Amino acid sequence: MSILRKLFGPYKDEVWQQLAAEIHADFVEGGFWKGSRVEATVKEWTITLDTYTVSTGKTHITYTRMRAPYVNPDGFRFRIYRKGFFSALGKRLGLMQDVEVGYPDFDDQFIIQGNDEYKLQLLFNNINIRQLIETQPEIGLEVKDDAGWLTERFPENVDLLSFQVVGVIRDVERLKHIYGLFGEVLNQLCRIGSAYEGDPNVALY
């Protein structure tokens, strides 16, 4: 084992290749301009894991993100993140209302926002979703406009389920939990009438 590997742990691509093998996904090698990524599927949905870096002038911040476009028939949006340092900033930036979903231990740990309180309660009534979220030491999970995701043009009624945290995640079990969370959330959104299982590349109405 190399000295660098002992100091910093396994390389990102090594872990992500292992993830791809375990969840039967595709590992896509990065190039000069783009980093490597993992592309997985759940039913008709494509889930993409990658990183991106933002320059703040004096430093660079790298984020790990996972995204999945899906058909959103009713415009339901939500955001959830752990209470902590960025909570006040998140509350100022958000136009959605803060909601408690009826599980005190869960409500105490997270800021939960959405544009439909009843749908939020239905979403987080799923115990698997709550448990998978609680496994994450840091989490930023939300539904937002696809915003030209990967420069693709999706129909107007397509939104994006998005996970994002600071840093490069090189823990395969944590990544598997995030992937499992995406599947649970997308399926629960279908159950409550806020998603369709169809291909988001095809307009349904």
Rank of each mutant, 00 (worst) to 15 (best):
I139Q: 06
D50G: 03
I169R: 02
K91S: 07
Q18T: 04
A20S: 04
I112W: 08
T64Q: 06
A195I: 08
D26R: 06
D13V: 06
R130G: 04
E152D: 14
G180P: 04
D171Q: 12
L122F: 09
V166T: 13
V185P: 01
H24N: 09
F124C: 07
K6M: 14
E197W: 09
Y70N: 09
T135N: 15
R37G: 00
D98K: 14
A40H: 07
D26A: 10
D98P: 11
I127G: 14
Y81I: 12
Y70D: 03
L7P: 10
V99L: 12
D13H: 05
G9H: 06
V28I: 07
A25F: 02
L19Y: 02
Q188R: 09
E152W: 15
R153D: 15
A195H: 02
R191E: 09
L7I: 12
G114F: 00
R37Y: 05
K119L: 01
V54S: 05
Q164F: 11
G57W: 13
E100V: 12
E22L: 07
A21I: 08
G35S: 01
G148Y: 10
P155T: 05
L161I: 04
R67E: 07
H177Q: 11
I80W: 01
K58T: 11
V99C: 09
L89H: 09
A40R: 07
K119E: 03
Q164M: 15
D107P: 01
D26T: 06
T59C: 14
G198V: 13
L186S: 06
I169Q: 02
T41G: 06
Q113H: 00
L132V: 04
V38I: 01
D107R: 10
P200K: 03
D199S: 04
L161R: 03
S55K: 10
L49P: 00
M1Y: 13
L186Y: 14
L181V: 05
I133A: 01
F163S: 02
L93P: 08
T56F: 15
F8Y: 12
G140S: 14
L175K: 04
C190H: 15
Y196L: 15
L141S: 01
I111H: 11
I178E: 03
F32Q: 10
K119T: 03
V71W: 07
H177A: 13
G167S: 05
G9L: 05
E142N: 11
L160I: 00
A147Y: 08
Q97L: 09
R170N: 02
Y63C: 05
G57D: 05
A68L: 13
F154E: 03
G198E: 13
K144V: 07
F85T: 12
